[in-house]
Design a protein around this nucleic acid. Sequence first.
DNA 1: CCAGACGTTGTT
DNA 2: GTCTGG
DNA 3: CCAGACGTTGTT
DNA 4: GTCTGG
Length: 289
Amino acid sequence: MCGWTSCHLPKEVLARACAYRDRQGHQRLPEWRDPDRYCPSYNKSPRSNSPDTDSSEQIIAPMRWGLVPYWFKEADLSNDTIMEKRSFKVPLVKGRRCVVLADGFYEWYPEDWEKVWDNWRPLIAGIFDCWEPPEGGDCLYSYSIITVDSCKVMTDIHNRMPAILDGEETVSKWLDFGEVSAQEALKLIHPTENIAFHPVSSMVNRSWNNAPECLLPLHLLTRKELKASASSQKMLQWLATKSPKKEEPKTPQKAESDVPQWSSHASLLERWLKRGQEEEPAAKRPHTQ
DNA sequence: CCAGACGTTGTT
DNA sequence: GTCTGG
DNA sequence: CCAGACGTTGTT
DNA sequence: GTCTGG
């Protein structure tokens, strides 16, 4: 599966970005469960905690990436081979559908590729489960990202892509396990051409590199005129010494809004970056409506 | 019936 | 090569 | 997904 | 827990 994402927005901004309409059509903010465990990052790998939402009264909760089925016996969760399918079906039937919040996702590819985008969605369909450790203690929530065949524009990069939920209504239906059956919900899952991507630096290969530059298009990163913040400076320095071998595409961020402009995206990123430099080093919201 | 696996990946 | 950590 | 380690040591 | 293979 796609092994890497970014989800960097501050808690409050993220919550606002997840505003939704309830069944009565009222605008609502999701409830944060366990917000202190949310850990924003530009560079999230499997087994990290990401926020997901679930249920028809939407909530946001941190969950472990990599599904641990509720029947799992071992106390040791260290390996990555905790599988799915059978594990996958049961939670699905139980209506344990969630949405994985992400700015986008990273994908590796072997050769040079020059591509441009489309727009992008941060909301990925997921399945979650709840596992109680045999020795007792808190229930562990974990999830798996649903993937689908790649859309056309991505096929040269990878044959699979995350199931991106395209639009507010799709998201609501996916989460509404009360009204929408598993079968119906699965119909919402399909490849979308509605994404944007660009090459990023190999800085993102190292999961401890966590800076906004992870998301940046390579051509912006290498521009000298960018005065970087303290944390960014290190990253750029690192880049200078270890020049990237591979390039990686990435669907960049943006947090809310329905239909981002296809052409404004690069400039949006650029503006956001500059603004971020003048103020706080990381975690600046990219854009508001 | 029990035993054993349980994965949409991974690689160009 | 293979496993673990992130 | 990639990066990095790879260790019951050794010494009566 | 639940499905598949034997």
